[in-house]
Design a binder for these strands. Sequence first.
DNA 1: TTGTAGGCGTTATCAA
DNA 2: TTGATAACGCCTACAA
Lengths: 342, 342
Amino acid sequence: MTMARSGRASVKDVAASAGVSLGTVSNVLNRPERVSAATRERVETAMRDLGFVRNESARQLRAGTSRTVAYVMLDAGNPFFTDVAQGIEHAAEQVDLTLMICNSGQRPERERAHLELLQEQRVQGVLVTPVDPESPLLEVIRSRGTPVVIVDRTRRDESFCSVAVDDVLGGRLALEHLIDRGHRRVAFVGGPAGLGQVRDRLEGARRAWTEAGLPADDLVALPTTSLDVASGREAGERLAGMASARRPTAAFCANDITALGLLQQAISSGIRVPEDLAIVGYDDIEFAAAAAVPLTSVRQPRGELGAAAADLLLDEATNPQHRHQQVVFVPELVARASTRAV
Amino acid sequence: MTMARSGRASVKDVAASAGVSLGTVSNVLNRPERVSAATRERVETAMRDLGFVRNESARQLRAGTSRTVAYVMLDAGNPFFTDVAQGIEHAAEQVDLTLMICNSGQRPERERAHLELLQEQRVQGVLVTPVDPESPLLEVIRSRGTPVVIVDRTRRDESFCSVAVDDVLGGRLALEHLIDRGHRRVAFVGGPAGLGQVRDRLEGARRAWTEAGLPADDLVALPTTSLDVASGREAGERLAGMASARRPTAAFCANDITALGLLQQAISSGIRVPEDLAIVGYDDIEFAAAAAVPLTSVRQPRGELGAAAADLLLDEATNPQHRHQQVVFVPELVARASTRAV
DNA sequence: TTGTAGGCGTTATCAA
DNA sequence: TTGATAACGCCTACAA
């Protein structure tokens, strides 16, 4: 009985051990009904004895296709993306696809490496929240035969399927809420300005502001270098440093993590929330509701985002008449204590 | 020029298009120095023109082994595990292995499905935070040839490599800190009691308590059904319902998420933190420091945990003299405002 | 119902 | 330097 080079038993070994032909073993594996009960029994015993494990590479080589899709995540440390991943996972499970998750950690070269390997693995398709949605790499991948769906970003041209949330509207919702609560001097906290999300949310905020007839100067931008807790704290320090007459009475943060940093810094500087400073975040991650002053936030349908992306990918991978489409979800304001009327 | 069935060009197609033999194409791919500059040039052009992508299945079938490892994560929604995953990823990257992440979401059947597929994919090895560390499945997987390392759990027998943190010590540290701060009536919040982590942390807490000569009854267990934000809130309600004379002056929570829920509920019930109730969490996730009352917590070296696990796996996969070992990290108390002396 | 043969795409060996 | 060939493990016609 020769063992496969890998040290594992192959169908051939099983066949030899069970005293049947290789084809029969394959039948037991793939069309058991064609095999007599007795032979099947014998083959299955042999498999158990030998610790037989099907070789997916060989199977896939033969089949030409795999049953897995992949999500290349932008930042595994941000709960928003892990929630999106769970949405994808759920949708994939429904159609019996396995999801592999890779993390680029915002690094273009890791993103590239993952995409290259996934392509070589002939995954059914990849979902990706790219570092740069305009990157030509995405086009190359697709042109080489791997379906690609962009998640939580959009491309300027409409050549890709994408799933995103209307950030301009989200920014608008946040500001309308604050204006509604009587705020007439508001800070926008976020950056870098080049980030599509930041740009769009600010844009929406501005529109709501000017449409309400308020002076542009009273919507103050507090740019940050990134969207994390530390940046929020830093912005908090800047706010605390302002003379209280000039200080905005509210802040709209480009995401929740930043808002949590701001909240923490404000409180420890003796600024009361929401009495002295109202705060609106963005994403509505689980921790937003659990903050000591529960955070008003713009909710993005994270799970649905993932599920919709998975559906688009599946369609692109299997439907020859597939047409690319850009799905845009509508965000929703969730009001909590951090903007309570005072 | 025949195209591969998959619709993609194969080495054969490239060879035909470049007017060379298949072996030459392979050489361009794997030992370019053996090929003359002119031919190489021609082959590379053909590859570009045809959009050639190497087929990893075939390569792996031939090679018998892959360059990827996988981490089967217990709960993608818990930042603790995503941090562990990042530690693994970093270590894997150093040795040029690709990490695939799968999520069991605490469901045994999904864990099993992932492990089966990974095995069939012939990954170099699997890291797993299992739903049940005693599950015989793990033994089966390994006996069939896939190295397995248990992450953040331990098995009673020492037959597996594992990496964990000393939870008994962690519980002890938390309570010593509280006792030190003068607390003489303390609640332990966490559950279900069957969970190894919960059991060990409580055990450590009890030891510190009795060694300090305090009456066992004054370490009150507040069992929860799970370790999430909602459970923490619920425990908070129970605490708020106690007569303030009988109410513990401090709570030790089995993890940070639960502690955050408790913190929120306490504050909204008018219980001041830390004046009326001191709180200690566990894990020291990023949001612990960013809570409005920054949370004292028992820090687990998440990144190192992942890195050590990856190292063990690599050793098991490549070193014939490998011996299983159980690495146990030492936790560390991080004191913050939630237990400030008052 | 069971067995035989050929091929999936890649790599490595060996010969030219 | 280049080319022909066999093999990795599996699957599926097709033949017995």
